[in-house]
Computed example of a mutant assay.
Amino acid sequence: MDPVVVLRDMRQDEYDVYSEQQIREYVESLATTAPYEVSVEKARQDRATFLPRGLATEGHYLLVAENDAGQVVGSVWLGLADPRTGSTEMAWLFDIRVESAHRRSGYGAAILGAAEALAREAGARRLGLNVFGDNAAAIALYERSGYQVTTQQMAKRLRSGAE
Rank of each mutant, 00 (worst) to 15 (best):
Ala31Cys: 09
Leu141Gly: 05
Met1Arg: 13
Glu143Asp: 07
Leu112His: 09
Ala119Ile: 08
Val4Thr: 13
Thr49Leu: 15
Leu30Tyr: 12
Lys156Asp: 04
Tyr107Asp: 03
Ser19Trp: 05
Glu163Asp: 13
Leu158Glu: 08
Glu89Tyr: 05
Asn67Arg: 12
Ala91Cys: 06
Arg44Ile: 06
Ser145Gly: 03
Ala69Pro: 04
Arg126Lys: 14
Val40Cys: 11
Lys156His: 10
Glu66Cys: 14
Ala69His: 11
Gly70Arg: 01
Ile111Leu: 02
Pro83Tyr: 09
Asp95Lys: 04
Leu7Glu: 08
Ala101Met: 06
Glu99Lys: 09
Tyr107Gly: 00
Ala31Met: 07
Gly108Val: 00
Asn67Pro: 11
Thr151Asn: 15
Thr49Ile: 11
Asn67Phe: 11
Ala138Ser: 07
Ala115Tyr: 08
Gln71Lys: 08
Val76Met: 03
Asp9Val: 06
Tyr147Ser: 02
Met1Cys: 12
Thr57Pro: 08
His102Asn: 04
Leu55Gly: 11
Thr150His: 03
Gly113Asn: 14
Ala110Arg: 03
Glu163Gln: 12
Val64Lys: 11
Ile23Pro: 02
Glu143Leu: 07
Asn130Arg: 10
Asp82Val: 07
Ser100Leu: 09
Glu28Ser: 13
Gly59Asn: 11
Thr57His: 07
Asp16Lys: 08
Glu121Gly: 06
Glu28Trp: 06
Ser105Leu: 14
Ala31Ser: 15
Ala65Leu: 08
Thr32Asn: 09
Glu89Gly: 14
Ala155Tyr: 14
Arg103Phe: 01
Gly161Met: 06
Glu58Cys: 05
Ala91Thr: 02
Gly146Trp: 03
Ala48Asp: 14
Arg157Met: 13
Asn67Ala: 12
Arg44Lys: 14
Asp13Cys: 06
Pro35Ile: 07
Arg47Cys: 09
Tyr61Met: 10
Tyr15Gln: 01
Thr88Lys: 13
Asp95Ala: 13
Ser75Cys: 10
Trp92Pro: 04
Ala140Lys: 06
Thr150Ala: 08
Gln148Leu: 14
Tyr107His: 05
Leu112Arg: 09
Arg8Trp: 06
Gln45His: 10
Arg97Gln: 12
Arg144Lys: 14
Tyr61Gln: 12
Ala48Pro: 09
Phe94Trp: 10
Asp82Phe: 06
Val72Arg: 15
Arg126Phe: 14
Leu51Met: 15
Glu58Ser: 15
Tyr26Glu: 05
Leu7Ile: 09
Ala137Phe: 00
Arg47Ile: 08
Tyr36Lys: 12
Leu63Cys: 12
Arg103Asp: 02
Thr33Pro: 03
Leu127Tyr: 10
Arg8Thr: 12
Tyr26Arg: 01
Val17Pro: 00
Ser75Trp: 01
Met154Thr: 13
Ala136Val: 08
Gln12Ser: 07
Glu58Gln: 14
Glu37His: 12
Ala110Gln: 05
Ser87Met: 06
Glu41Leu: 03
Arg159Gln: 13
Glu41Val: 00
Ser105Asp: 00
Asp13Gln: 02
Ala117Tyr: 01
Ala138Thr: 03
Ala69Arg: 13
Gln45Ser: 13
Lys156Arg: 15
Ala110Gly: 01
Ile139Trp: 02
Met90Ile: 00
Gly79Ala: 13
Gly79Trp: 03
Ala65Arg: 07
Trp77Arg: 11
Ser100Pro: 09
Ser29Lys: 04
Val73Arg: 04
Ala137Ile: 08
Glu116Gly: 07
Glu121Cys: 01
Arg125Val: 08
Gly86Trp: 09
